[in-house]
Amino acid sequence: MLETRALNKSFGAIHVTKGVSLRLEKGERRVILGPNGAGKTTLFNQLVGELTPNSGSIHLDGADITALRVADRARLGLSRSYQKNTLFDGLTIGENLGLSAAVALGKGQGLWRDPLQSAEVRETVKEVAAQVDLAPLLAMPVNAVSYGIRRQLEVGIALSTRPKFILMDEPTSGVGPEMSKGFHRLLKALPRDLTVLIIEHDMDLAFDVADTITVLNYGEVVFDGLPGAARDSQLLKDIYLGAWEDA
């Protein structure tokens, strides 16, 4: 269970997160919608600890994690992918996944064995590579592959920690419709007990995979409910779809 209580964050005079309270049950798949500048990524950064809220608290499985640092939260099973690819650029795809799995398994400080050769890490790399459709490309250097493949790897790295909670920041941003569809399949194939929180602009994805939808506008939660209700909501249409319908 992942929960925020009355979270607030300001940058100077700009109030980016206004009293956000969310509650995700175990295994829930939630999509966060909202126009640009609604505070979606800022909310993510607070959840993983890259930003500290001005007030309010964050709870993971009942424990208050507001004061924990990024690495400590990651070790509790909280994983994230970034809106802007955040990869290990000089390494191969396989090394990217292997290093991530090794660190998540607590082998990132060991002095004796090569974690990339350990059965556990190799198994994880194999499974995650199959999940994100990168199995034939493990030996490719990251800086030699296309943007779309880097996007798949971005999600792959987040999955290679075998998380309990995964936060994905616009995983399909900048990719074509084919890859978007592939991503829908990936999401549907994820284990049902994994709690998923996704920031998305793609409405189809939101309505296709989400159990629940949260809409942020100017830092505030303006809608929180089932996809069906979101589709019919006039409020949502006004703030989020309005610009499209007018066009």
Partner: peptide
């Protein structure tokens, strides 16, 4: 050397 921020997010001290 390549990405300190990501390693931290993966749980490395």
């Amino acid at each position: 050397h390549h990405n300190e921020k990501r390693l931290r997010a993966l749980g490395l001290t």
